[in-house]
Amino acid sequence: MLITGAVVSVGLLAVSLRRLDYQALPQAAVLAATFFVASLISVPLGPSSVHLLLNGLMGLLLGWTAVPALFVALVLQAAFFGFGGVLVLGVNTMNMALPAVLCALVLRPLLPRAGPRAMFLIGAAAGAAGVMLTGTCVALSLGLSGEPFWPAAKAIVLIYIPLALVEALMTGTVMSFLNRVAPELVLHGEAPHV
């Protein structure tokens, strides 16, 4: 499972790096840093608090660039906060990046024609899809390690559901905010100098 994750992540990174222009690096870095900082904000939820994944929003705004941006954020989190280990880096990147790429491919093309209401809904869909797909990928990674892990995998999917709801609401808010304040970021955030 560790090896599958590493192979898939290396493949995704190779594709996305080829698409990433050197000139776009500064902008990708600033957005990657924004997502890193935003994911440090602890959002109260019920009696506890959660951190956002934001991979749906990243896919929506960055397109394929979300993959290296997520990878960099995960490397920094692993090295400086000890989140996850060294060897699960590949699996983690896959679990975060696949949903982001899916949001980029499916939802991103809808953005140019979306009205204010649709913008919120697309954002909400990306937020919910990002979290739930990541949760499912984590559960699958665990479940494929052996049958005894199945109950834990199911529990993890359940834990992700409330997180997905909060993230949907927040990602929707972010998208309608951006639509009002900086529509150019929503429409072609990836390529400022075509």
């Binding site: 840093a33 909060v166 927040m170 808010t173 972010v174 900086a182 955030g189």
Partner: peptide, 22 residues
């Protein structure tokens, strides 16, 4: 209210960071 306020916070952070990146 909190979740929407934080959503706006993240949106503002993105707008500022885009200006910065330019």
């Amino acid at each position: 209210h909190t979740w929407i306020s934080y959503g706006n916070l993240i949106g503002m952070l993105l707008v500022r960071s885009l200006e910065r990146s330019r």
